[in-house]
Design a protein around this nucleic acid. Structure first.
Length: 563
RNA sequence: GCCCCCAUCGUCUAGAGGCCUAGGACACCGGCUUUUCAAGCCGGCGACCGGGGUUCGAAUCCCCGUGGGGGUACCA
């Protein structure tokens, strides 16, 4: 009989979806799809102290955004009924009872302090601590008595005294010596199951046949295998994925975002440029915890961190899937890139759709070595994907981006204009880039800010040549009857030729005058989209403002800056 | 400390004993193109961690060393 392949992704709701988690989800998804099986999503929310409100929703959103739809799990149900471990408590307790009754598990009543003391003592002597099985197992009533006395009571599994061999699809056979194994906890003192326990019980209940998970779980596997044996469960096929690291070899961690913002905050405060209270407010933290965050290693809530980053004008490093969404990456491209971190189809292909990856996927082709997350390559993937994407797909993706981009200058822009923007921005790398580049086309005149360097370079420098060009061009533009890119091009190019000026000499002064900086879409389209009236007004205003500055702006450069 | 895993260009990787003078992609460098930012085109630089084996032959197999990573919880 050929059992249906069932895989699962089982995150705990502690925040946004991580890059590593996304890849694990992807591989599980691909394996299930590839083999015509089922892909389930299970929420591992058994740690009462770690669950974060709203995190599950974020997790699901990220997964959906990526297009990794699950066949069973939250929102869609499935044969296992509940897919939140917090709602499956009864089954863990039932199984624990079974284990206790058959003598395969026992109560243990050491306190955390006692355990910690043993650990320290062992550390000193031999360097490693393994929980030593007690000589006496508390009876049911003794356990109850301990509980009554306020002592913690946990349930531990009796590990069989033999080596465990993990048959891993990627790593081969990994043998863990019996001497490395110990009686791990099944049920915590609060009655909730540990990860090890819940994962085994649920994988069995959900019929999971293949477990693809990060390599950080490799050393957990003997526990799971021992438990499966004790319970008479079959052992699923295991495949431990290599880990995704930062370019510098460090682990990709949310903490990086805190570090980036913390540094900026400290710099701001040191420069006397900001009130502590204001920053704390931006982070929606009370002064005490803000201070603790600022001076320590604590982590701020993702959204609070984002607000603070905005306040400080720092770019958060992209760590979680949501960060990439906010930067304006295409989800299908992110998925494609992530898939190649540890897997390759073997035929030299790199750019693949989810369907193509599904068709090509196999666990055998997953590598063993940790991969570094190279953002430069990702950016290139995205650039090429944007160039190759069908127009309507691109528009939908841009709409999605604008939906999550706070206070976007392009927020109210109609689809037709968005299409136009996409057309005139070839070479585009990220949606955020388009947003920044086109902001001036939609911003009200008062909101325009002029970049000093740009003004100096294109308008002032060289005896205000740029300014002169602008002044002469003004009436030419004013005379353009048909305010569209083509006619503007004719007029402006004609002007340039009549003066013997290359387009660059003409376009850049205009660009800076109407956009405030040297970067915008092609100048003729830019002018058309800004509109005749606003263009003329911005040019006039620029001329006026800089003329007033003239005495100061053009002193004979007697004291050279050379030193 | 102890246990486990890993090791090909800067990065992601192809390579399953002769097809390898090691292939591709990104990055980088040079040139071209150019109204800005990009994009594009052409060319270039660039790796089998070290040492021992095994074999007629090793990037591929074995051992040791070194380096990197993971684990060492009543977190997952």
């Amino acid at each position: 009989m050929t059992a249906t392949v069932r895989t699962r992704f089982a995150p705990s709701p502690t925040g946004y979806l991580h890059i590593g988690g996304a890849r694990t989800a992807l591989f599980n998804y691909l394996l299930a799809r590839r083999s015509g099986g089922k892909f389930a999503l299970r929420i591992e929310d058994t740690d009462q102290t770690r669950n974060i409100a709203g995190a599950e929703q974020k997790l699901l959103d990220d997964l959906r955004w990526l297009g990794l739809h699950w066949d069973e799990g939250p929102g869609v149900g499935g044969p296992a009924g509940e897919y939140h471990q917090s709602r499956r408590l009864a089954s863990y307790q039932r199984v624990a009872r079974e284990l206790l009754d058959s003598g395969k598990a026992y109560y243990a009543t050491e306190t955390r302090e006692e355990l910690e003391a043993m650990r320290r003592a062992a550390q000193k002597e031999q360097g490693g601590f393994l929980y030593r099985r007690p000589t006496h197992f508390p009876s049911e009533s003794e356990a109850q008595k301990a509980r009554d006395e306020g002592r913690p009571v946990v349930v531990r599994l009796k590990m069989p005294p033999r080596d465990v061999v993990v048959s891993d699809q990627i790593l081969g056979e990994v043998r863990i010596a019996a001497s490395e194994l110990y009686d791990f906890v099944l049920l915590k003192a609060d009655g909730w199951p540990t990860y090890h326990f819940a994962v085994v019980v649920d994988d069995e209940a959900m019929g999971v046949t293949h477990v693809l998970r990060g390599q950080e779980h490799l050393m957990n596997t003997p526990n799971h295998i021992a438990l499966q044996e004790a319970l008479g469960y079959r052992t699923p096929v295991y495949a431990h994925l290599p880990i995704i690291m930062n370019m510098d070899g460090s682990k990709m961690s949310k903490r990086e975002k805190d570090r980036a913002v913390r540094a900026a905050a400290a710099a701001r405060l040191a420069a006397g440029g900001g009130e502590r209270a204001a920053l704390a407010a931006a982070a929606s933290a009370d002064p005490g915890s803000f201070e603790a965050w600022l001076t320590g290693d604590a982590q701020l809530d993702g959204d609070a961190l984002r607000r603070l980053a905005r306040e400080l004008h720092v770019q958060l490093p992209e760590i979680e899937i949501h960060d990439f969404r906010l930067s304006g990456y295409l989800p299908e491209t992110l998925l494609n890139f992530i898939a190649l971190l540890g897997w390759s189809p073997g035929d030299g292909r790199e750019r693949m759709s989810l369907e193509e990856m599904t068709a090509a996927f196999s666990v055998e082709r997953i590598g063993k070595t940790n991969a570094r997350f190279d953002r430069a390559k990702l950016l290139n993937f995205n650039t090429q994907a944007i160039a190759a994407a069908p127009k309507e797909r691109l528009l939908a993706a841009l709409r999605d981006y604008l939906g999550v981009s706070e206070r976007s200058p392009l927020a109210g822009v109609p689809d037709d204009t968005l299409r136009r923007l996409l057309e005139i921005n070839d070479g585009l790398r990220l949606f955020r880039q388009l947003e920044e580049k086109c902001a001036a086309l939609f911003a009200p005149d008062e909101a325009l800010s002029y970049d000093d360097d740009a003004v100096q370079k294109t308008l002032i420098k060289g005896e205000r040549a740029g300014l002169h060009v602008l002044a002469e061009l003004q009436p030419v533009l004013a005379a353009v009857g048909d305010w569209r890119a083509a006619a503007l091009e004719t007029a402006i190019k004609g002007f340039g030729e009549s003066r013997g000026l290359g387009l660059g000499k003409v376009a850049q002064p205009i660009r800076v005058a109407v956009c405030g900086n040297t970067v915008s879409p092609p100048i003729f389209d830019t002018l058309e989209l800004i509109g005749r009236e606003r263009v003329l007004r911005r040019i006039g205003e620029t001329l006026r403002r800089l003329a007033a500055d003239a005495p100061r702006a053009a002193p004979p450069a007697s004291q050279g800056s050379s030193s």
